[in-house]
Amino acid sequence: MSKDFCIAIQERRSIYGISKESVISDERIQEIIETAVKHAPSSFNSQSARVLVLLGDHQNKLWDITKESLRKIVPADKFAPTEEKINSFQNGYGTVLFFEDENVIQQLQTNFALYKDNFPIWSHHSSGMLQFIVWTALEAEGLGASLQHYGSLIASEVSKEWNIPTTWTLIAQLPFGKPTVKPGDKEFSPIEDRVKIFK
């Protein structure tokens, strides 16, 4: 494990204060996403991950959809903090949306019936690794991000707005941008309680 990789892992944090600026080009963002999607591990090399990257007006539209979806279920007198939170994501430069293609998973379940119950679980494992790769890579480039989960709430509207195949299941959203705040100190449980090594 290289020192640079260790540092990137340590410095990857949830950054909620982000701006509509980027410290890298759109081409570099695309390169990071494509490399991550291509090389992220997946069970049986299924490559079930799908990604949508929204920038500019598309970024704004996503969080407008989310805000209006939440407005329908959050009481009006309690909506202000929710709106403030969504606005903080909308203030970012872009958002990465992570999906899993159910067609791929179902095909694996058919072809390898012995493991059929595991493929949806393994799919989420793979998605989690991809999310970590993208998040950490953006952090290494100087961008701040946080991982959000509004999937079922906005999936239908997202599919309609960006013509997403119905077989893609929305797993998570990663709004990102130039950091405007530094994260606070992070507390850690004793590592000896969490890692056991036998030699």
Rank of each mutant, 00 (worst) to 15 (best):
F79R: 02
E34G: 06
N103M: 12
H124Y: 12
Q30L: 11
Y93F: 15
T35V: 10
A140W: 00
Q131G: 09
N91K: 07
N91S: 14
I9L: 15
I191Y: 04
R71A: 14
F198S: 15
L108F: 08
I121D: 06
S189L: 14
N111F: 09
W63F: 11
L174A: 07
A80H: 00
S126D: 14
K116T: 03
D193H: 14
I133D: 10
W135H: 08
L138M: 12
A36E: 00
S2R: 08
Y150K: 01
H125S: 11
S126I: 04
V74R: 00
L174K: 03
H149N: 12
V51S: 08
F99A: 07
P120C: 11
E141Q: 15
Q90A: 15
D117H: 09
G184A: 09
K78R: 11
R71M: 07
V134W: 03
G92T: 06
T66H: 01
P183F: 07
P41C: 07
G56V: 14
T35C: 13
A137M: 09
G94S: 05
C6R: 07
A8V: 04
D117R: 13
I86F: 03
S19G: 13
S123I: 10
A80N: 04
P41F: 05
T110P: 03
N111Y: 04
T35Q: 12
L130E: 00
D64G: 05
S69Y: 01
I15L: 09
I133T: 12
P190D: 14
D77R: 02
E83G: 12
S146L: 15
S2G: 07
L170D: 04
D57C: 09
I29L: 15
K38D: 05
D117S: 14
Q59M: 13
F188Y: 14
I191T: 10
K38T: 14
T169V: 13
L62T: 01
E11T: 13
L143R: 00
Q90W: 03
H149G: 12
E31H: 09
M129T: 08
P190N: 12
T95V: 15
T180Y: 06
F112E: 06
E31W: 02
D64R: 11
F89R: 03
L97E: 00
A140N: 09
G128I: 11
R50V: 10
E102V: 15
L174V: 10
S189W: 01
I171S: 01
K38W: 03
V74F: 00
K38H: 08
R12H: 01
S152V: 15
H124F: 13
A113R: 11
N118C: 15
G151R: 00
S156L: 09
E21W: 00
V158M: 04
Y93D: 04
L138R: 02
